[in-house]
């Protein structure tokens, strides 16, 4: 059987600068992959190319064997949820309406169906008591958990996470990472751009290391973290390794 998400030969240029130089990867159903690498290597651009928020210059993306083209884009996007670094909750809507707007307006669910689904997902991220709040009344960590609930409520086949904890204080990072770990263990298919070593080690099936617009190497966490093939990977891991202790201390496992 073919992979759920197949990305092949993605290229993207900004002006003269080629951010992605032909990136290919596959994601099996139920798999969680974490993309790591120095900043500016095109990790986020890759994620945005997958759902065409940034249309790639070349390459193809297939979801469940169906190639993404402009015509089916909105239908594909309903099945590929995206979690943003800066949350992007709809500012004018209460938490509940942020989550129901997609199922109601896009998937055509009834008001009660959408509401039930939203409550289920809010409970999953531990925020059932914030139904009536507006995004501005929540902490960053809570906002990100609501945005994960919003993603889940679309019942997507895969969720793309674009540095979901980078805008958060270390103490708020933990609550988001915990939600993500639980999703991974429940078999959610996830592609995560993140430097959260704790999440990568314990929840990822595979780590993808990117540098300079290429995938340099990929493999299971144990292999990639403990026996990286490339010097570039080793250097990068040493660098963020210095922060692992801090992250653990700051309650990554909390």
């Amino acid at each position: 059987m073919s992979a759920l998400l197949e990305v092949e030969g993605i290229r993207k240029k900004y002006g003269q600068f080629e951010v992605l130089k032909g990136v290919s990867l596959q994601l099996e159903r139920g798999q969680a992959k974490v993309v790591m690498g120095p900043s500016g290597t095109g990790k986020s651009t890759l994620l945005r190319c997958i759902n065409y928020l940034t249309p790639p210059d070349a390459g193809t993306v297939r979801l469940d064997g169906e190639e993404v083209v402009p015509r089916n884009l909105n239908r594909i996007r309903q099945q590929v949820a995206f979690v943003f670094q800066d949350f992007n909750l709809f500012t004018h809507l209460r938490v509940i309406d942020n989550i129901t707007i997609g199922p109601r307006r896009i998937l055509g669910l009834s008001k009660t169906e959408a509401r039930d689904r939203a409550m289920r997902e809010l409970e999953r991220v531990g925020l059932a008591d914030k139904v009536r709040a507006y995004p501005a009344e929540l902490s960053g960590g809570q906002q990100q958990r609501v945005s994960i609930a919003r993603a889940l409520a679309m019942e997507p086949k895969v969720i793309l996470f674009d540095e979901p904890t980078s805008a958060l204080d270390p103490e708020l990072t933990g609550e988001v990472v915990n939600v993500m770990k639980r999703l991974a263990s429940e078999g959610m298919t996830m592609l995560v751009v993140s430097h959260e070593i704790g999440f990568a080690r314990s929840a990822a099936d595979e780590i993808v290391f990117m540098d300079g617009g290429h995938i340099l190497e990929q493999g299971p966490p144990a292999q990639l973290f403990d026996a990286p093939q490339h010097e570039r990977t080793r250097r990068f891991l040493r660098m963020i390794g210095d922060q692992v202790g801090d992250a653990a201390a700051a309650g990554e496992g909390a």
């Binding site: 928020l53 996007r77 309903q78 949820a81 943003f84 909750l89 709809f90 997609g102 993603a151 679309m154």
Partner: peptide, 15 residues
């Protein structure tokens, strides 16, 4: 209105 609002809407499949 911040760009991210439109992006989030489009990312969930809203035209």
């Amino acid at each position: 209105v911040p760009q991210g609002q439109m992006m989030a809407a489009q990312a969930m499949g809203m035209g």
